[in-house]
Design a protein around this nucleic acid. Structure first.
Ligand SMILES: [Zn+2]
Ligand SMILES: [Zn+2]
Ligand SMILES: [Zn+2]
Ligand SMILES: [Zn+2]
Lengths: 171, 171
DNA sequence: TTATGGGTTGATATAGTATAACAGTATCTG
DNA sequence: CAGATACTGTTATACTATATCAACCCATAA
């Protein structure tokens, strides 16, 4: 019994990394990975936390906390902002989701459990998000840090532009 | 008469790029550069816009819109949020200041007039900000974009950590 | 068993960030 | 002068996020 929450909408999201894929499968895999990760770390993967992760996975898009809250409220899982923010805090602090600073939005992590520095490609039209990898001190940023004696602890890399689908539609 | 606004506080900011420097001189230079840029592009460098740029330059730190507004209000330049946001919109849209997404804050541009992709090094203790350079499509992010067919239009790179001074104090 | 403590939830209130909208004013231009 | 444009003043509102405290669940230790 790993499916504790209702599914009120069909699986509509078309892309990860902007590629079509078997999305029901990708959701199930990611939820299972989260389940395993929480079990291993003795974390409490509660219904609200699970459901928020599922919501993010279903869309494969950057979503605002209040967008998520609206869905939770419709499903009877809570209607006050802290409900969404607490679940998002849990997911982001344990590497199951990321915050997109530029959009005040959140998205499911594509590599849960792997310690990594995410870099995002965000479509300004459809809000689809792809997660790439970057290093903490690579490239010119690392050069600048070393040159000045700055100690990098965390890096945010977010690119905005057009995904392949929207770029084509645009042209 | 390029100095139209009052100076209510001494020149206290100690660093740019985390180096000590002749700060009064650096402010004057930057304001003059802004002046020239606006003249060349027939932009209206109004008192409020000039004063907000000066405020950002004086601190050499990331400042919130409401921090800036507080100073403007004390100087009789306006007390409502749009006053600050309008000036910041002007400065950011013409490359005279940047927004730091991670902090909901703003900082003066270190290279006004030069078309560039800024990357920021932000001290989590003293909030000092250094502006480095990066490319729009360099490194692994560009690789990922090309691999997926994503068209990058804008990039945000923000590193958080400790500046040399705070790192030393920490140890 | 009860007690205690940690973590989670429910609910209210409030803080912090940003924009919409519209009237008024100044300036330029035909 | 009329009309266009741009900036300012002001009010109201929207959007994002956190503080706080009481209630609850559950594991564990006295
Ligand atoms: Zn998927
Ligand atoms: Zn798109
Ligand atoms: Zn300076
Ligand atoms: Zn510092």
């Amino acid at each position: 019994m790993t499916q504790t929450t209702p599914r009120t909408s069909p699986q509509i999201a078309p892309s990860v990394g902007f590629d079509r894929h078997d999305h029901s499968h990708c959701i199930a895999d990611a939820v299972q990975a989260a389940e395993d990760l929480c079990a291993a770390q003795k974390l409490n993967f509660t219904p609200a936390r699970r459901r928020v992760l599922e919501i993010l996975l279903e869309r494969h898009r950057a979503m605002g906390a209040y967008d998520i809250l609206e869905i939770l409220a419709a499903e009877g899982l809570g209607a006050q902002p802290p409900v969404a923010y607490r679940a998002l805090d849990f997911l982001t602090s344990h590497g199951l989701a990321h915050r997109i600073e530029r959009m005040n939005a959140y998205t499911a992590c594509a590599h849960p459990g792997e310690d990594h520095v995410p870099a995002f490609l965000i479509c300004r039209l459809c809000k689809a998000v792809a997660e790439a990898e970057t290093g903490l001190e690579g490239g010119r940023l690392g050069d600048a840090a070393r040159a000045t004696g700055f100690v990098i602890e965390k890096v945010v890399v977010e690119a905005e532009g057009l995904c392949p689908t929207c770029a084509e539609a645009e042209a």
